[in-house]
Amino acid sequence: MIATMKNVVKRYGDFMALDHLDLDIKEGEILGLLGPNGAGKTTAIRALCGLIDVDRGDINVFGKRQSINNVDIKQDMGIVTQELTVFSDLSAQDNLKYFGSLYGLRGSQLMENVKRVLEFVELTEHAKKKPDKYSGGMKSRLNIGCALVHRPKLLIMDEPTVGIDPQSRNHILEAVKKIASEGTTVIYTSHYMEEVQAICNNIAIMDAGRVIAGGTIDELVGRIQHEDTIRLIAAMPSEALAEDIRAISGVKSVTMIGNEYVIISTTGSGNLNRIMEIAMRHGGVANISSDKPNLEDVFLTLTGKTLRDEGSGQ
């Protein structure tokens, strides 16, 4: 393992941000940390990076105990923060030079790394411009570049695609795969299931400060393969409809998201037709479909919430 977190507890006043969190990170993998807002993902990675102290538990990185004062471990780690944290009053090149120099790079080695990163994030032509002249996607790419300039062994990316356009998002996801292919271990946090499914080898699902499930996508989905996910958009949605659907034998849960009902039902129970009949009695059906389970359904089964729900949050 390149890093481990054992029984980690972190409180902010009465709020338990990390609740006996256990997490193992294998060398060379892309680990997805999936969970809704407020699940504790950012707190977990800040603790892993030694940016905050924890109240209890052990965090080890590269075989050494992590703490807020341990400067050695930070030498081989890089973090892409959720917020844009580059210097807007310096050019992209100067940003990369500064961050590279903080990690001990000097002279020709520094310039070589800066050039390589500019090419990697496709900002070579804009190297001398300041970030306030950039688009949102370009700023995100520079944000990522600043974490790569020193070639970290462990890269943590905290929701790097929030607020950017789909094209830039795809570009970033491709970049993550390329980074991992060059030997860097990546921890990628997100509340977007599609991103995690697209790039991660292993996934840890977090909620309320702890990992509630972990494994490959197939392993996680396999936990609920005996269940179907039926999505119903009713013509006249109501709580009474939800109650009647819950009463059907074999229906495990019904969650309303706007005017869509997400229904988890035992596979082979034939409930699709029964649900349609009930919906017709309640005013009609706009759309109904039955899907193979995905990570969102795994999360829903385990927590009764969707990944887009607001968590208890800090």
Binding site: L51, V71, T81, T85, G104
Partner: peptide, 13 residues
């Protein structure tokens, strides 16, 4: 402000 997380992540006191 938010930039402190990136600066604190560097091996610099």
């Amino acid at each position: 402000q938010d930039r402190r997380w990136r600066l604190m992540a560097a091996p610099v006191p």
